[in-house]
Design a protein around this nucleic acid. Structure first.
Lengths: 364, 364
DNA sequence: GTGAAAGCGCTAACAT
DNA sequence: ATGTTAGCGCTTTCAC
């Protein structure tokens, strides 16, 4: 069959002509299965050479069409603007590449319409699986995937339409609260005055963390009224106002449980106009290197993005995503220099945690 | 032609059978060109309905193969861990979606081998164009794209193998330096003692900013010796050490030009162990909301990610990416509350800047 | 107005 | 040991 080259990209037919052999032989050789098909080493080398010379590059759309396997894997996340989601994206990509798959990550800005249309596009592009991260209501997306018979996993915010991988928000919050109480005690403050600021009313992660916070206080022999919980949302400005309000109520609390990095950002803004001496102890359920470097006593809980992604791929690999199944991953503690200087011991690793040492090459 | 359904996804043939018509008619209708082909409204509606009922979803791999147009557009970036690259990724996605294209963003961790293999994979996936952001040496990648006849644009770090879109580092640094000098003067400090910290020796952006810094000082009637420039790299720890060194040399400088957010992170870490009163004025060529909220006098230069992406798409749209062409985009100034409180006026918008008001929905 | 047919680049079963 | 062939799902020209 005579084919004239479209544009300039060479196909296996071009290679076949140039190497004086057939397209199927070229295909076999290029896919490494030429040994199995006992193709002469000489022929194989000739093909490999001309392919290299012509700068041949497989057309994965054609291969995908033929094999009904695109080698595309998708993930949606709300955005890249904090370390948690940025980390999820990078880990997902690394894991996908390690498997010879092409990762497609798309941010959806927490907009349900965008989420839906992005998922539809990904399905149309024939992704082999989809990880749905940080979506408030993943159910309709899970339905979309199911109808297209593609496996999906909910990450961070769970849903009932597929398996979900989530951080152990409650246990993490208990641990964080316990340490916060102990630091406040150590500084001579009254732990009963500790406050909780940040997060969204009714949101899974927030409510779990509130529950953990209250449980942690109770374990320390402190009972706190619900009124003390300030679920002011995720905007820094709102958090700042919450802190202003708290400051207006009397002496500032000796410790605060800050839910999310944006709420902590609100706290630093608040600090700009209020000189607090001594500064309160901050426990933040979230992590950011800039915040961690602050000259403030702050302990942070960092979600284990590597484990979260590994577990998500494990579900996909297993071939089934049982509706409603929950896989829980513990977060890990990070302590600021300001706390370490105060004599806080290094945190002991939570049992069963994946503690791969990861050299993070920080750059601009 | 009889076809048995693979898996469960319906094809135009399934729709055709169910709607008692032919695959070509279904295709015409589904692509909206049925008016042009004067297909009966009744037929069209019947097809549309059965397509919806069957949850039909176009196979874009097949369409791409047929049309030699994948509707995929690619971008590579070093990582998502700062606001600049995160912003680039999000803008690129938004712009791509607005054009009905599927964005593929992949992070390459500043590793030349990864960069190369990711670009090869993207070419194999038939991306229609590629934006290469933050790559030290884009030349070999430009060659790869050229051989595959796909348009590419270098972003942030320029190269000679294609057109490049870059921030106006030099003019930005001059502006930043001028303001820094004026703030230092206003605080009664000696501007001749201002220092430059951060960045990588020989890197395009760093050298441009150093040149702008020196030019800015000169314009203010100050001549600074080259020895004062501390290109300590992008790791926060190295920056911190640089600050320790500077502190050891005598009274701390009244102002510092900090190149990159990681260097600023090093500065905050340094601040934890050194009480400086009054604090030095900080001018940072980079932007981060957390840093901007710090109770410190800091002015920041934010790269205009929207304009950078818009210009990159403009090159792609034009159909040619002239080797070596440079398109320059001015950055914009951001001033911390601590500076505003000191009576600093609001920055005037640089002329010709794309100043779309963008409501940034910050969340966790 | 609608259908038949060819072919995008690739793979794999089946011939030779 | 290698070539022939039949599609994967889609678009579009041409025929009826």
């Amino acid at each position: 069959m005579a084919r004239k080259p479209t544009g300039r990209r060479s196909t296996i037919y071009d290679i076949a002509t140039a190497a004086e052999t057939s397209a199927s032989t070229v295909s076999l050789v290029l896919n490494g299965s030429w040994e199995r098909y006992r193709i002469k080493k000489e022929t194989a080398e000739r093909i490999l050479n001309t392919a290299k010379a012509k700068g041949y590059n497989t057309n994965l759309q054609a291969r995908g069409l033929r094999l009904s396997r695109s080698s595309l894997v998708g993930m949606i996340i709300p955005h890249y603007r904090n370390r948690f989601f940025a980390g999820l994206a990078e880990c997902f990509e690394a894991e996908a590449r390690a498997r010879g798959l092409t990762p497609i990550v798309v941010s959806t800005q927490r907009d349900a319409k965008t989420e839906r249309s992005v998922v539809e596009t990904m399905i149309a592009q024939q992704v082999e699986c989809l990880i749905i991260a940080g979506v408030d209501d993943p159910d309709p997306l899970n339905v979309l995937c199911e109808r297209a018979t593609i496996l999906c996993v909910n990450l961070d915010l769970p849903g009932e339409g597929a398996a979900s991988v989530v951080t152990d928000n409650r246990a993490g919050a208990i641990e964080l609260t316990t340490r916060l109480v102990s630091l406040v005690n150590g500084a001579g403050g009254d732990p009963a005055r500790i406050r909780f600021v940040g997060g969204r009313q009714g949101e899974f992660a927030t409510e779990e963390r509130v529950a953990g916070f209250l449980a942690g206080l109770e374990q320390a022999g402190i009972s706190a009224p619900k009124a003390e919980i300030e679920r002011c949302g995720y905007r820094p400005g709102a958090a700042r106002q919450a802190f202003e309000r708290i400051a207006g109520e009397g002496p500032f609390p000796p410790g605060v449980f800050v839910n999310s990095i944006t709420a902590l950002e609100g706290f630093t803004a608040f600090l700009g106009s209020h000189r607090l001496a001594p500064p309160p102890v901050i426990a933040c359920f979230d992590w950011d290197p800039f915040a961690a470097a602050l000259p403030l006593p702050v302990i942070m809980l960092r979600q284990n993005v590597e484990a979260l992604i590994a577990q998500s791929f494990a579900v996909v690999d297993s071939g089934v995503s049982e509706r409603g199944r929950r896989i829980v991953v513990p977060p890990t503690l990070a302590v600021s220099p300001a706390v370490e200087a105060d004599g806080e011991e290094a945190p002991s690793p939570p049992p069963g945690t994946n503690r791969k040492a990861r050299k993070v090459d920080r750059d601009g």
